[in-house]
Computed example of a mutant assay.
Amino acid sequence: MEKGYLLLESGELFSGIRVGRHTSVMGEIVFNTSMTGYQEIMTDPSYAGQIMTFCYPLIGNYGVNLHDSEHGRIHMQGVIFNNLCSLPSHYQSIKTVDEWLKQSGVPGLAGVDTRAIVKRVRKTGTMKAIISGTPEVAADEWKKPLPRDVVGLVSTKQIHVYEGAGPHVVLIDYGYKKSMLTALIEGGCKVTVVPYNTSYETVSALHPDGVMLSNGPGDPLQLQPLFGELKKITSEYPTLGICLGHQLIALAYGAKTGKLLYGHRGANHPVKEITTGKVWMTSQNHSYVVEKGSIDSRAFTVTYLNVNDGSVEGLKHKELPIETVQFHPEAHPGPQDTHPVFRRFIEMIKQNKGEATHAVTY
C-alpha cells in the first residue's frame, strides 16, 4: 500500500492510501451525502473536473456491476473514500471499486478523514484540491486553471437515435445520465440524442415533438454563446430542462445564476412544490442555482423551492410549454418521488400536438 495525500487550496493536508491510478491530479473538491449508489454517482458526467468525497464511510461493499453505470466511463478527476471495501459481496459484482478505478485511469485515496474534509468544504466552500504522492506541491501548481470546457468533454460527438412508437424527443446532451434516456424510452418515446452545441436548424430538421435539455457539469455561463439558439429551440418545442438544462433555460430567458458555497449533492434533498405545498425528497448534483430575484415573473412561475436554503428548484413558463427542474427526477441513485416529471413532460408534448390526454399529477 502506497501513501498518498490530498492537498486543499486553503492549506489543509489529508493523508490516505492510494487507490486507482497512482498519478497526481487537480480538481474542484466536492462531496456527496448519499448512502448508496456509488456506481451511479461515480459515472455521473456532471462530476467532470471534480474530486469527489464520499460522506458515507463505507464504499464498495457490493462491488461494481454491469448495469448501474450512468455513463460509459468515470469523468471525475479523482475520488476520496474513508473505508473502501476490498472484498465486495454481491451476486452481480464483477470487480472492486479499486480495480474499476485502475482500469478507468482515475486516482483516488482511501482511509482518509472524509468527515474533516466535508467540514472544511462546508465552512470554506468548494476549492481547488490536488491528489498527490507527496505532501507538498509547487506553488505554481495552484495557479493552473481548472478545466473549463467540461461539457464539451462529456457530450456526444454524434447523433444517436433510439426508436419508439410515441412522441419524438430530441435530448440535448450536456452530459446526460443513462437513466434519463431510459425514462423517456420507457415512456414510449423515440429519442434522438444530439451534441450540446446543436443548432436550432439541426434540431428543426429532426422534426421533434419535444426537446429535453440534460444535466451536465460546470458553470452554465460557459455556454453563453448557445443561449440564443436555446431560446429559439425552447420557443418552438415543448421543453423539459433538468439540472444544467434548467439553468440554461433560465439564462436564455434573461435570468442569472450564482454559485452555491458547497453545492447540493446527495439523495435526500427536500423540495417543496409551490402549488400543493407537498415536500418531495430528491436526488441532486449541482454547484449553481438560478437566482430567484433575476427571474422574469411576467414569463415564469417558480414551481419548486429547496426546503433547506430556499433556492429555486423549478420553473414553468406562463405561456409556452416549458418546464424545468433543478433536481434529478430519474433518481439514480435516489428516491423516486418526482419520477412523474417525465410522464408529465410526455403528456405536455401530447397536449401540444392536440391529442386527447389528461394531466399528470403526483
Rank of each mutant, 00 (worst) to 15 (best):
S46N: 10
M42C: 02
M127I: 10
C55N: 09
P145L: 09
T43I: 08
G60H: 04
K119L: 10
D140A: 14
L66C: 14
N65F: 03
V121D: 11
E136Q: 04
I51L: 14
Q103D: 15
A48K: 04
H75R: 06
L66I: 09
A139H: 11
S69R: 08
N61M: 09
N82G: 04
W142P: 01
D113C: 06
C85K: 11
C85R: 11
K144L: 14
R73P: 02
S93P: 00
D113Q: 13
K123M: 08
V97I: 12
K123Y: 07
E141V: 12
M76L: 15
M127Q: 15
Q103T: 15
Q77R: 10
E141H: 13
C55V: 08
G78I: 01
L58E: 08
V112S: 07
S104K: 06
E99H: 04
G72W: 01
L66T: 13
M42Q: 07
T126I: 11
G49H: 04
R122S: 06
K119Y: 04
M127H: 14
R122F: 12
E99N: 07
A110I: 08
V97N: 04
T43N: 01
Q50E: 09
P45N: 05
H75A: 10
L109K: 02
G111P: 04
G105V: 00
A139N: 07
A116M: 03
H90L: 14
P45E: 02
T96F: 10
A138P: 06
D68Q: 09
A129R: 05
V97T: 01
T53H: 04
M76V: 11
E70M: 06
V112F: 00
Y56S: 11
V137H: 15
V118R: 05
M42G: 03
Q77N: 05
L101N: 08
A129T: 07
M76P: 09
Q50T: 00
C85P: 12
L109F: 00
N61T: 15
V97M: 04
Y62F: 12
A110F: 10
C85T: 15
Q50H: 12
T53A: 01
T96D: 05
G60S: 13
S104R: 14
A138K: 10
T124I: 10
V121W: 13
T126C: 12
L109N: 08
S89R: 13
Q50C: 06
H71K: 06
H75Q: 05
S69C: 09
G78K: 03
I41Q: 01
T124V: 14
T96Q: 05
C55F: 02
I131R: 00
Q50G: 00
D113L: 13
D98I: 11
V118T: 00
K128H: 11
K95W: 06
M76T: 13
I41R: 04
I74C: 10
A138S: 12
N83W: 10
E141D: 13
G78P: 07
S104T: 02
I117H: 04
S69Q: 01
L87T: 13
A110P: 12
Q103R: 15
I131V: 01
D113H: 10
